[in-house]
Amino acid sequence: MKSKSSWGRNFFIGLMLLFMYAPIIIMIIYSFNASKTMANWGGFSLKWYEALFSDRDIMAALEVTVTVAVLSSITATFIGTAAAIGIHSMKRRWRNAMMYCSNIPVINPDIVTGVSLMFAFSLLAVPQGYTRLLLAHITFNIPYVILSVMPRLRQTSNSLYEAALDLGAKPSVALRKVILPQIMPGVISGAILAFTLSIDDFVISFFSQQGAQNLSIYIYSLARRGINPKINALSALMFVTVMSLLLTVNFLGGKSSPEARKKRAQKKEARIARKAGTFVMEEN
């Protein structure tokens, strides 16, 4: 009985994995198809890759995506860490109020956040294009940094701070030399999380662009016009990048691999949760 049911289980899991990967694999295969449609195989060709690289719009979109991700995650990390420290030392009522507000972009569906940002930008006459995109990304990144740093702050005993003061450190020095090192893992994972979310964002960026496209928006506009093998090529490249990143991180931290895996698992979970609008963050 054991082997029969485990065969059934394995088959089911295998099927599901196929379901998850088939579309991607198909895209990769057809990225090498010389013919434009899937109707026939025109032979192995790299022309779509060439087209991809010579497509200036894509390269521009890629640049926008990466720069926005880097800038917004760094800014969000600074503002968010400072905010977390501030919120942590507030009285309970204020703290709850701040956290409630801070979690609004986390809970709200993307579309509502995107629309409300559009409102804000237009009323404040923020210049369209890159500026709006950047501000939007910073806005939705900060709450995740805060949610990443807060548990660490809670874990850090207040007597450490007092001990530093007691030994003669000014409050700012105590913060820098004692509290910051303690919360650093949270700060870093917050930054990484922000970066990941930013790279992948579509909906919020959609409402904030008009002028600057990030990768998601570009793909959307391309895909709307129908099937385009350039996208296949892009997917193939992206998949390879993701896989190699995964493998490097996994093998890089040889002895810290369980930690690295845990960290990435946390990152993944949080990112997934973000997309759904509910936040569940696992601390160990």
Binding site: M16, L17, M20, Y21, A22, P23, I24, I26, M27, Y30, M38, D200, F202, L215, S216, I219, Y220, A223, I227, I231, N232, L234, S235, M238, F239, V242, M243, L246, K268, R271, I272, K275
Partner: peptide, 19 residues
């Protein structure tokens, strides 16, 4: 099961257009 999530959301949706 999680790795596909790391691919861009739109690419994943587009994948089904192909199929």
């Amino acid at each position: 099961f999680i790795v596909p999530m790391w691919m861009n959301f739109l690419l994943r949706t587009y994948a089904w257009m192909n199929i």
